[in-house]
Design a protein around this nucleic acid. Sequence first.
DNA 1: TGCGGCTATTG
DNA 2: CACAATAGCCGCAG
Length: 567
Amino acid sequence: MARGDLVAVALADDVGLGIVVVATGRSFTLACDAPSDVVAAIDAELRPRWVFWSIDTASMLVRHGVRVATCWDIAAVHRLLYGGWRADPARVWAVAHDLALDAMPTEAPFDLFHQELLAGDDPEDPVRPDGHLSPEWANGRWSRSVVRLGRWAELAAVVTLVQRARLVEIEDRPRAMLTARSESTAELLCAALAFDGLPMRRRVAEELIAAFVGPRPSNEVEAQAQRDDRDAAVLACVPGADDLDLRSPGQVKSLLRRVGIEVPDTRGWRLEGMRDAHPVVDALLVWRKAERVATTYGYAWLDAHLGADERLRGAWSGSDGSAGRMTASAGLHNMPADMRGAVIAESGHVFVRADLGQIEPRVLAVVSGDRALAAATQDDDLYAPIAQQLGADRPTAKVAVLGAMYGQTTGRGAHVAGRLEMAYPIAMKFLRDADRSAQGSRDLRTYGGRLINVGSTNANDVDEREMRRIAAARGRYGRNAMVQGAAAELFKMWAVLIRARSAVLGAQIVLCLHDEVLVHVRTEHGLTLAALVVDALDEAAHGWAPDRSVRFVADVSVVERWSDAKA
DNA sequence: TGCGGCTATTG
DNA sequence: CACAATAGCCGCAG
């Protein structure tokens, strides 16, 4: 048996850790409430692909100070195979055994009536007579017993085998097994990201916030006074508007109406061009910026998410429920650019920051197999050769390509859509096919094998016009999900390779942002790590798209502040 | 109190 | 201003 095929199941709950190693068809329990150094030793010596039911095990291991190299994350693979987000053991088990989901048992209230109903069940068997998993077991009955632990681990091994078989069976998706592995290992990365946090200097962050909303108020009265001052600056622009509430879109609309500005909504991009129409417009936009900082990225945000060790922590998910991008809470994925100046490497450390250039059109070239588009990716800036091909300027070419990937049908991009179709017919057909499938409520599967669940509309609920509008939106969603999803798969392969290769440098990935990665490392290893990150992209891209006809590029820099790197 | 709408931030 | 996400406040229904 190959080293990588050795399967070890790690299970963890609040009280401890258990391990079962499965080899050549026989399983034997190594330990229950095993010390974490046993896990670490097994990982170092045997390098198994650990099997986890979910990221919870990885998180538990990380909290115990153990970072294993690779894993098979049953929940992550389930999401890949079947789409959506729900992937608890009972559901995964049922799907793996083709059992009806609506017959899935829920945990019975502990009373005599249900005791009666369950009389035929064996509490020591996690599988009920109807084939479903016992909810009691799914909720932790396996813990603190060597025998039950072994039984629970066997089930995980069984599910793993079913999942592997189904990945192989997916027609026309040869990268599915590879994707399942990297999606699994990305869960280990997420567990570490949540634990480690993003270095952020509290004093600097507070200064940046103060620049927008003033010093930290010491009580609620002061906070209210600051709010009132901000509001007054806007309301003073319009006589008699003192009692209007700027936080209410309807009242903002009437505020604007008083100065002769009639708008269907008050979104920033709509008001942007009207700054000259009346002073209140500019005042309102400035107010909105400050209000955003005050409510979402202000002192309360720091207090809630920035630890005493000056690390910003949020919850990480290896894939969202649709196309499969990573998600993060606590503002880690939508922190205003102005706040990035506070993301500063710790003393004696630097960040290696890298982002993939123009990843979506390059990914489109791979997944569609369009040779003409692949040729364009040889350029550092692929929009340059595309513009030349279309006989248009670069901004127009870029808008057209992005519009095709998002499903835009109006505006400047649509103007050259015909020429885009002529120049890159394979890529355009790929997008159109995805659009059409999704419009018809047919599920899609990404290049790496992720199922994209496409909803449907009940014709009774809406009229014909609304029906078409929803179908069109579904088409745009499907079109984009095929590109965005594949890009997410490539990104995660890159990220987990960086994680694996940079472990010897003591490096820590501290942020993943769709096409960008931030790695924290001791200063003396900065340049080595930067080179490693570039090599990792080459390796990931080659494994993902072996024919090498599409070029991927990364912008890499070694910096002390995140904001120093913005290209 | 929960939820949809509006708004803003990011890729 | 199309695709995706998180997140806050308002207004309304229950």
